[in-house]
Design a protein around this nucleic acid. Structure first.
Lengths: 336, 336
DNA sequence: TTGAAAGCGCTAACAT
DNA sequence: ATGTTAGCGCTTTCAA
């Protein structure tokens, strides 16, 4: 069996409490005893049982992170950024993938809470329907939304200003096209808050005449496949506009692939934009103009909000909105 | 405070033991009592405290998964596959990224063990140097290597036959080139076992004259950047061969990008292969010929090995070797 | 079948 | 400064 505090205490010939004190550095203890304890612990290869500690302290130093789709590189990037930030606070991160499934999301969120995590960071699958599970868990422990939010839940949120991101794209397109271009939006159904914000911002731009788009947006999923399919449809209908505004980079990459397959040249025949700035955006041919979400700042902000709640800070929900940035690449590089 | 077993017992007017029995479905209990308990639990919104349960049972139903680099889509795919498999066994997965860092790897592996996970799946950062931490933890609880292994550790391993993968590539290249082609290997330094196996298999093929390569392999990292850089170097030296064998898809994608930038046509001027078959391999221009690793089978096999060890199966280390598959795409599609 | 009670390993009052 | 002890919430003998 693994050695316990008791074993260390016996070997160092001190009480359990002393061992605990030495190993946690809480109270002052006699240096002689302390070194005896440390030696004993080393010799035995003692490791604290974090379950017992968590049970006793009512605090585990674990936080849960729930993403909607680990397969989307934006979210694996976010995971990495969050892990890094929390590692520094000596926290363990318990990661879960909801696989874009509401039931699974509810399950994993509940399970995390049952495991005694100190708090949860969550990018909810659905703005409207993730709320029930989220509200349930938010009643038990601190919950902070990141990147996306769920309606009707009193929780802090750290996200990126999606509307501004779309505005950046629209303005850029107007500039390279020398006036409001004929565009079409290919995005995901506005199930999550980010998708909705992007759609709405685009619709507003169209209403204001900053882009010329009388046709309805093409709404599917945030996947390469959907980007391909949507473009294939447009080509089949001979309905390609001047510019394609894609709801995220995966869609844009699919769109570029489909355009290339059909011999449509980008940016000469049509220009294309994405959203997120995932690593592969630079690799696409042509490289993809897109909106960069500040991953690191997002992770830092969300972590900070959560830490404060865990530390017991009360108050109304806070919403931190970060600024995205336009990254211009070859997919919109039209000759003047 | 969250309701405990005690609260449920009080409300249902039975003993703690009875509540526990009902909720775990272990022993037979009177249906009347059982329903009373269930009602009480529902009304209180009772949730079992998994820390307490774990402490008592000495089993948490959590397994840890340690990957060397979450940013590599091969590993995020592996994570997803493993999560899915373990979810079915009613297990929670505690995920950790070692960020290609031996110290960090050691830390996270130890931390997982401290958190009382029932077992650990690990793709070690280094074949030689991950061993110490791995052996340490393997002495405490079941450890299974997946995809990669560490030397000098008695542990089960589930991996893919890398040598066979390289053989598939080499044979394919010989076929499309009409004889042993002049090739060059661009891969990662043989720090991990997979990288080493790929290098060795390639060296063997060269020694056997199945490819013509007198120059040393270009060894860096499994990243897009390295692929770019290596190819830029070859171009600068005017040393491009007939075919580039890349150690993984990231390198190959970087290579394709660099070739495109310099106006070298693939597959007309040079052919290129990858390894892993990550999602973006189909999106590259041209799409990438590569070796598909059976992610799902890998996850299933590793999970199964671990489950058996957790269940107490003894015996010498088992090594399961899975077969990879060649996926031919445009990057090697030379006209006859 | 049900209940009482011990104890998983640890921390934090409290007492010395 | 150190030790003694109660108890975190649960499961599981053991007795009834």
């Amino acid at each position: 069996m693994a050695p316990t505090l008791r074993d260390v205490a016996l070997r160092a010939d001190v009480s359990l409490a002393t061992v605990s004190r030495v190993l946690n550095g809480s109270t002052r203890v006699d240096p002689t005893l302390a070194s005896r304890v440390r030696t004993a612990a080393d010799e035995l290869g003692y490791r604290a049982n974090l379950l017992a500690r968590g049970l006793r302290r009512q605090r585990t130093d674990i936080v849960g992170l729930v993403v909607p789709q680990i397969g989307n590189p934006f979210f694996s990037g976010l995971m990495q950024a969050v892990s890094r930030h929390l590692q520094q606070s000596a926290r363990t991160v318990l990661l879960a993938d909801a696989e874009d499934d509401l039931d699974l999301e509810r399950q994993v969120v509940t399970r995390l809470a049952d495991h005694g995590v100190d708090g949860i960071l969550c990018a909810p699958v659905s703005e409207q329907e993730s709320g029930v599970a989220a509200a349930e868990v938010a009643a038990r422990l601190p919950l902070v939304f990141l990147d996306r939010a769920a309606a009707d839940v009193e929780a802090d949120t750290a996200s990126v200003d999606q509307r501004r991101g779309i505005a950046l794209v629209v303005d850029h397109l107007a500039e390279v096209c020398g006036g409001p271009p004929a565009t079409r939006l290919i995005s995901a159904a506005p199930v999550d808050s980010a998708a909705r914000a992007r759609c709405e911002a685009y619709a507003d731009a169209a209403a204001e005449g900053r882009v010329a788009d009388g046709a309805p947006p093409l709404l599917g999923e945030f996947t390469v496949e959907w980007g391909r399919e949507a473009v294939a449809g447009l080509i089949a209908d001979d309905a390609l506009p001047q510019a394609l505004v894609c709801g995220n980079d995966l869609i844009a990459l699919g769109a570029l692939a489909a355009l290339a397959e059909h011999g449509v040249r980008v940016p000469d025949d049509i220009v294309v934009t994405g959203f997120d700035d995932v690593g592969f955006a630079t690799l696409a041919v042509p490289s993809l103009t897109t909106v960069r979400q500040p991953l690191d700042a997002l992770a830092a902000t969300a972590s900070e909000l959560l830490e404060q709640r865990i530390a017991g800070v009360e108050g109304p929900p806070r919403c931190e909105l970060l600024r995205p940035e336009l990254v211009v690449r070859a997919s919109t590089a039209v000759a003047p």
